[in-house]
Amino acid sequence: MPVAGPSRRNRRDASEDGIEEAMPTQGTDDVVNDDEEEQSRRGAKVKKEKSKGSRKTAQAVEAEDNDDDDADADPLADFGDQPIDRAQAQKIHGFSQDWDMMRKTKHVQMYGLVKDAATAFAEFAEPDPASKLLIEMDTLMRDLMDTETEMLYHNKILHDLHQQIVRGEEISNIADRYDDEIRTKVAEYKKGTSRQKYGKSDQYASYKQAVFEVENPGVGMPPMADLIPREDGDESDDDDDDVQVGGVTQDYKCPLTLTILVEPLTSKTCGHSYSAASIREYIGVRGGRQQCPAAGCHKSISLGDLEPNKELAKKAKDAARRERMREEDSDEGEVIE
């Protein structure tokens, strides 16, 4: 199982409290269900192990649900100070894989939970509380990204050590060497500015886009440079082209019906999406391959190119609900003479 670096536990203390504070006690039953609360608790437990100076395995983090004392074991200590042979190298490889599995199966799930909670806060909370809650959720999102980055470091360093042993290189005191490399990597990462750590992250851009859409319907998200202020150590805004790229206004309308997407299917050929019933009728009547009906697209598509898009379906459903709410608010505001 993978071994946690010396900075894992303190992170969890802050993030676990952050999760509890960020989740309000009222109005979020439709956002955080029992399964998601369990994921939140276990995700926070992973983060808490991030920074208290002991090396932990992913399985040890899991074991804490039953016995916290057992989680203090240090599996790399079993290797001692002697050179590692190839048979032992397989265990190192297993530790690396466990870090990657824990990141993919548990930690990454938290991104969707935080994004859903933040968009709900933006949509339903009063302006002042929403602002405070959204600041907390943004901080939590960044904490999750920090934790994932450290998980990637554990995975890569263990993988590299395994490869060196397989190549016949002699490695002694592997536990100390592993800890030293983790400390160095984490220290370098922490020195980075907010733009350097988050500005080019697809996960963070997706989060910011989702919240911005709720707060500013029909408006394209500004460049990330406007959302992540420049700090000492950043290049000037004019030079940082990657951060200057703005968001795209999401269109949730089917190009055939011109209404909000229903059970959207997305083309693997061109990436455009359509309501399931309308695109099946469009292609089915003609048969074979047909030109994509999206404006300006010249790709040809067939029914075999289409696949369900659950994430887009959820977004389209939320967009339809917000549109209905805006129409209702507009109707209530009209004065009937």
Rank of each mutant, 00 (worst) to 15 (best):
336 I>T: 11
287 G>L: 05
190 K>T: 07
183 R>F: 11
188 E>Y: 09
23 M>P: 00
176 D>K: 10
316 A>Q: 01
24 P>C: 08
50 K>E: 14
265 L>C: 00
157 I>K: 07
221 M>C: 05
322 R>F: 06
71 A>V: 04
112 G>R: 08
60 A>P: 02
300 S>W: 09
130 A>W: 09
55 R>P: 02
294 A>L: 02
226 D>Q: 13
185 K>I: 00
226 D>A: 11
220 G>A: 15
286 R>E: 09
209 Q>P: 03
98 D>H: 12
116 D>G: 05
233 G>E: 07
232 D>E: 15
181 E>W: 09
307 E>D: 08
165 I>Y: 09
183 R>L: 13
326 R>W: 01
84 I>W: 06
39 Q>L: 12
44 A>R: 10
157 I>T: 13
23 M>D: 01
288 G>M: 06
261 L>D: 04
294 A>K: 14
304 G>I: 01
35 D>H: 10
87 A>Q: 14
27 G>M: 07
199 G>F: 05
62 E>S: 04
28 T>I: 13
224 M>G: 04
156 K>M: 08
47 K>I: 03
40 S>R: 13
304 G>Y: 00
20 E>I: 10
162 H>A: 02
305 D>S: 12
191 K>R: 15
98 D>Y: 05
201 S>R: 10
293 P>D: 02
216 N>H: 15
132 K>I: 07
321 R>A: 13
208 K>W: 00
318 D>S: 07
141 M>T: 01
158 L>C: 01
256 L>G: 05
191 K>G: 10
58 A>G: 13
28 T>G: 02
254 C>Q: 06
9 R>C: 06
61 V>R: 01
98 D>R: 13
216 N>Y: 08
267 S>A: 12
238 D>W: 12
110 M>V: 12
333 G>T: 02
235 E>C: 01
126 E>Q: 14
100 D>H: 14
35 D>I: 05
88 Q>D: 13
228 I>M: 15
244 Q>K: 12
251 D>E: 07
68 D>V: 14
119 T>G: 03
102 M>S: 06
277 A>P: 00
139 T>G: 11
309 N>L: 06
311 E>Y: 04
185 K>T: 01
35 D>C: 03
226 D>L: 10
60 A>R: 08
